[in-house]
């Protein structure tokens, strides 16, 4: 899978809540969902590179701007936890979704 997708311009909705109540140690840079590791969490920033029909489907499924998702699995394709449901997304989509990685509680403690 080639991931040489240049980072898209960030959507102008930056006020997405990106952290827990106890603040962030350091804000990771926004990236595509496909670059996230299994076990991590991220907030969706934009669906602009998914194609409009697919973006519409994803929003209806609850994967919309501002939603926090967890990456459950990425052994074959990516499996996400979206609002308590498990969604499997093909690589064409995960490469088109811009996210803000969230520090998982355990992970940030380890640095």
């Amino acid at each position: 899978m080639s991931l040489s997708v240049s980072l898209p311009v960030l959507p102008t909705a930056p006020s997405v809540a990106t952290g827990g109540p106890d603040g962030l140690l350091e804000a990771a840079r926004p990236c595509t969902l496909s670059q996230c590791r299994p076990g991590s969490r991220a907030t969706v920033l934009g669906l602009d590179d998914c194609g409009s029909d697919e973006a519409c489907r994803l929003r209806a499924l609850g994967l919309c701007e501002g939603t926090a998702v967890s990456i459950v699995d990425s052994r074959h394709a990516m499996v996400l936890d979206v609002r308590g449901t498990r969604l499997a997304l093909g690589s064409a989509l995960t490469a088109g979704i811009t996210v803000q990685p969230l520090p998982a509680a355990a992970r940030s403690a380890r640095g």
Binding site: G51, R57, L87, A88, L89, G90, S91, A92, L93
Partner: peptide, 10 residues
């Protein structure tokens, strides 16, 4: 060929 969007039900 529409990209895969698949719900994995419990």
């Amino acid at each position: 060929v529409r990209p895969m969007i698949l719900e994995l039900p419990a």
